[in-house]
């Protein structure tokens, strides 16, 4: 996973609520066995006509948003399925930060695992940032993770909250499996005690 420190990027405004994971990446693109290459299918239904040609009005089909690194939406971004293909598609497109008033839980989690920073900010702040984003190349936003601020084009700063452990993993680009395996001893002890206390937890063995 790439580290996330400071990102200055074009932000794409997508003023819709309840953008579900089927919209971010429809199920027919989930047949891959890789994490990469999904960017071309991101927002497929919103982005392309059935014949595969681009819908010119869709924000990510317009300059300069084809190079957007930040996406701003309304409430409940990423609702629906647990597919990590949604953040993979965003990442592959080039999005490293998503900003919305609220997120669906699993999508929110999945973002962190892929070096994408999901930032919760109130609706009126999102509206303000969308106005900045509409300035295109002149409206680049900066996300400083260490300082936990979004910096607007005029230099004004907006603070945001982030879980300290997740922030640490993002800043260092760390694999959390490695972190957890440092506690392997404790896991083993817990596991043994649990198997003794609850012998009815049968092992799954298929002949």
């Amino acid at each position: 996973m790439d580290k996330f420190t400071v990102l200055t990027a074009i932000a794409a405004p997508l003023p819709e609520a309840n953008i579900d994971t089927d919209k971010i990446i429809p199920a027919r693109f989930l047949k891959t066995t890789k994490r990469s290459g999904l960017g071309v299918h991101a927002f497929d239904g919103m982005r392309y006509y059935p014949d595969g040609s681009e819908k010119p009005d869709f924000v990510l089909n317009r300059e300069p948003y084809r190079k957007a690194g930040i996406l701003i939406t309304y409430d409940n971004l990423g609702c629906g399925s647990s597919r990590e293909h949604a953040p993979w598609a965003l990442l592959d497109f080039g999005i490293r930060c998503v900003i919305a008033p609220s997120f669906a839980d699993i999508f929110f989690n999945n973002c962190f695992k892929n070096g994408i920073v999901p930032i919760r900010l109130p609706r009126e702040i999102c509206d303000m940032l969308m106005d900045d984003a509409r300035l295109g190349g002149n409206g680049r936003l900066t996300v400083d993770l260490e300082r936990q601020v979004v910096i607007r084009p005029d230099g004004a700063e907006i603070g945001f909250d982030i879980d300290p452990l997740r922030k640490h993993l993002l800043l260092e680009g760390l694999d959390d499996i490695g972190q957890t395996l440092q506690h392997e001893g404790a896991i083993g002890t817990f596991e043994t005690a649990r198997q003794q206390a609850q012998p009815w937890q049968t092992r799954i063995v298929i002949d």
Binding site: S82, R83, E84, L165, D176, I177, E184, I187, E191
Partner: peptide
């Protein structure tokens, strides 16, 4: 509960998840 693929790998490797 449902989890993403990175967490699937986490469970495979550690039989645990990091959760609040």
């Amino acid at each position: 509960f449902g989890i993403g693929t990175s967490e699937v790998e986490h469970v495979m490797a550690t039989q645990t998840l990091l959760q609040k």
